[in-house]
Amino acid sequence: MYRGLLISSGFHVAIVAVSILALPFVAKKPLDIPPLISVELIQIAEKTNIPFAPKASKIIEKAKKENQKLLSEQAPPKKVKKDKKKEVQTDKNKNEISKLASKKTPTSDNKIEKLKKEKLNAVPMPDEDKQKIQPKEEKKQKPSKEINDENIKKIVQTKKPILDEKKVKQVSEFEKKEKLDLNEIAALIDKKKENLAETKKEQDKISQSSDNTMDYSKLTLSEEDALKAQIFTCWSVPIGLPFSEDLLVRVKLQLKPDGTIEKLEMMDHVKMNTPGKEKFRTLADSVRRAIQLCNPLKVPSSGYERWKNMILNFDARDMLGG
């Protein structure tokens, strides 16, 4: 009798257990939400210059290593007070700031603490603000890996960004993310800090002319395409020319910053006056007309040194090849 009861209850327990464990709706598993895919819209020009990315990643890695190194060196809390140390350890950005401060000149980031302190005080008077914005001459500091009281004091004392020092470069989009600008947040809270935030933005601008990581030897795809598209419309190809391998005209251009052609040199100019090369002359004439018609060229807005001199290869072989 008891045996049957035991067997029955055993089975019941088993069935309930199986139902709970096996049936998915009983298990009440949390929904498996796919992770968000973040899409960042970037300028093509920043990415098409191929050597850009590897260089940038190297620099970022180097910077990270240096940060770690700095952290490990800072580990013994001998000279650094507790509260300062915490700040250094918790915020990587501050490390970077301190590094920048120690190596170069202080940037607007360096004033975070000061600004915070100021926030705690009463609303600053307009006079005080003016003082803040006025650029101050900063003493150049020797690089120091150790963060001592003096360093921190200097960081804290730094009030203003150096407005005319706009060559603070940002090497890549990745690093851009890392550089969190607290000025912007501060500006949201306090309208008077907008100036500082704007300054920071200006400094953060990646311009091709000022960016060391750009490959100076070539144009980006979009720049090249824009130039090509302009010249395509100007070049009336002499379609009567019979196909031959001699349908390539090379022209060397020297340009002014506004794209005006300063000098035009036919690279095979000897051919132009060679008897029997009349067809080449016709093609070269059409090329000259095309360039003059396109003058001034729509050149990239920056990076003059890259495109100051360029060679255009007018190749009619594809068009006249049948």
């Binding site: 070539k218 090249e224 130039l227 090509k228 190809v237 890259r306 001199n309 594809d318």
Partner: peptide, 19 residues
């Protein structure tokens, strides 16, 4: 070499509009 490496652009198309 670096200084002499000029940008070269290939123009392989043109227009066929009457001159």
């Amino acid at each position: 070499t670096k200084a002499n490496s000029l940008i070269e652009i290939d123009i392989t198309r043109g227009n066929l509009d009457p001159l």
